[in-house]
Amino acid sequence: MSSRVLSAVLALWLATSAVSRAQDNDAAANPIWQRLHAQLFGGAPISVGDSVVALETPTRAEDAAIVPVAMRAQFAQTKERYIDKLWLIIDDNPSPIAAVFQFTPSSGRADIETRVRIEQYTHVRAIALVSDGTLHMATNYVKASGGCSAPAGKDAVAARAHLGDMRLRVYDAPAAGRAALVQLMISHPNDSGLAMDQLTRNYAPPHFVRSVEVRHGANLVMSATVDFSISENPNFRFYFVPGDAGELEAKVVDNQNLAFTASVKLDSPRVGAVSAPR
């Protein structure tokens, strides 16, 4: 009898957890999303689907601290029609608005690849504001990682030692008029911090990248406001359309107002320089 009692308990648990999973999967009903929809977009209608922006995530976060995410525009940026902004939202993270990216026609393509922390089972959303004023959203559901993976950084000592190192790299040989892939790597703990521990007096203030701005001469290529939902050592891959030669320059500012820059000359070696905090 006792094993039947156990299976009844299990059945009850499975039944209730199946109900809550089904609710989780209803992307529109998530109360956090409903609040963000009102807050960020004033409740404006958003068309759902991937005809404007497609979202790529794994179905399961293998490593909670580093989950690759890509938002891919479904058309090239032109003066007539372009993606103005992309929001990356992770509903059930402590800070759901992971990043807001701003693009221009000079971006070529409004594509972004980055990595995020995933705290628990959650919807992830890519929302595009098109230059015609319309909003479009692609949503994926991502399962959390196993119990021994945490979104915290892997090596706190190493993270401090390399703070502010940057790499800016153009992958494709710059050719006028064609979108070239760029990668920006920032060595930074991108940490949400820890509250004071009354016992140990142990304290770690939040320390995370706040803004990223990439320019090609006078043209803005991409700018972003980001948060600690972005993984340690923030990494962004995106496009730009090289015009004349000159420099591609990235400027990063964190929440403690430390600024870091890197630049790459477009007519010479393709790996950019590194700079210390100023």
């Binding site: 628990q120 196993g146 119990g147 021994c148 945490a150 979104p151 000592v157 140990t200």
Partner: peptide, 23 residues
Amino acid sequence: ATLAQSLRRRGPNYLNALTRDLG
């Protein structure tokens, strides 16, 4: 020497996942 800090950073996640997976 790093364990106390790591437990503070990771512990709450570990505890949530443990409750989630083991009830």
